[in-house]
């Protein structure tokens, strides 16, 4: 898993089936996609990683071996919120992905939470959907917030993931496009490539993930 879109929503949440998403991912140069609630599987060479939304009451690793849903892996995602909720989530989880920081109140993710994320190997997701779909102030706020996350990432070195949050194949983007979008928030091309490989690193922490492309 060198190139993963860290969150897409297929039919019925979106308008594209999981197979069509996998076909499009392959065309775009992605080798895996993370789909909340999906059964882990592989289609035409594209790995579909299931995801569960993490609750504080379910402590443990972000990697959830899933014997009952098929031979695959499930990634733990957590929805970011206010500062206290984020702190509680970060303190109780390991190796998961914190999503939705663009929609949180001001100062909900700071240097203290960055340090905890770095210590626990918790990734912060850069969801490009507001950059792609929104216009005006919602997009400006998202760009501002992500630029702040990138600054903290450079200082504390917590992992980053990138996702499109696509609800349609038309909203999915290639690694090249994500690198171009990443430039808007100050991400270098190499950093975007590393972020695309982070899901593989979270699921297989023992295995070194080589960055290609």
């Amino acid at each position: 898993m060198h190139c993963t879109d860290a969150c897409v929503y297929p039919y019925p949440d979106g308008d594209s089936t999981i197979r069509r998403i996998a076909l499009t991912a392959r065309e775009l140069g992605l080798d895996s996609v993370v789909v909340p609630g999906a059964v882990p599987q592989s289609f035409r060479g594209v790995e579909i990683v299931g995801a569960v939304f993490y609750r504080k009451s379910h402590p443990g690793s972000g990697r959830v071996p899933n014997g009952t849903q098929g031979a695959g892996w499930v990634l733990a995602l957590a929805q970011a919120g206010e500062y206290a909720a984020n702190r509680a989530l970060l303190r109780s989880g390991n190796g998961m992905v914190l999503r939705g920081l663009h929609a949180t109140p001001k100062n909900s993710f700071d240097h203290i939470l960055s340090r905890i994320a770095a210590e626990k190997g918790i990734a912060v997701d850069i969801d490009f959907s507001p950059v792609i779909k929104e216009r005006g102030s919602p997009r400006q706020r998202a760009l501002q917030k992500y630029a702040d996350v990138i600054r903290l990432h450079r200082k504390f070195d917590f992992p980053l993931t990138v996702s499109t949050g696509a609800r349609s194949v038309l909203e999915m983007r290639s690694p090249r496009e994500m690198a171009a979008l990443g430039r808007l928030i100050g991400l270098e091309r190499q950093e975007t490539q590393e972020a695309l490989a982070t899901v593989g690193r979270l699921l297989f922490p023992g295995k070194a993930v080589e960055v290609v492309g």
Binding site: L28, I132, L170, E177, M178, A180
Partner: peptide
């Protein structure tokens, strides 16, 4: 080119029909 690619990635609609422009 990079600015153009970023802008192309944000196109979601062409003439009120949902489309993607993929470089």
């Amino acid at each position: 080119e990079e600015d153009l690619l970023a802008a192309l990635a944000t196109v979601t609609c062409v003439d009120s029909q949902r489309r993607a422009l993929r470089p």
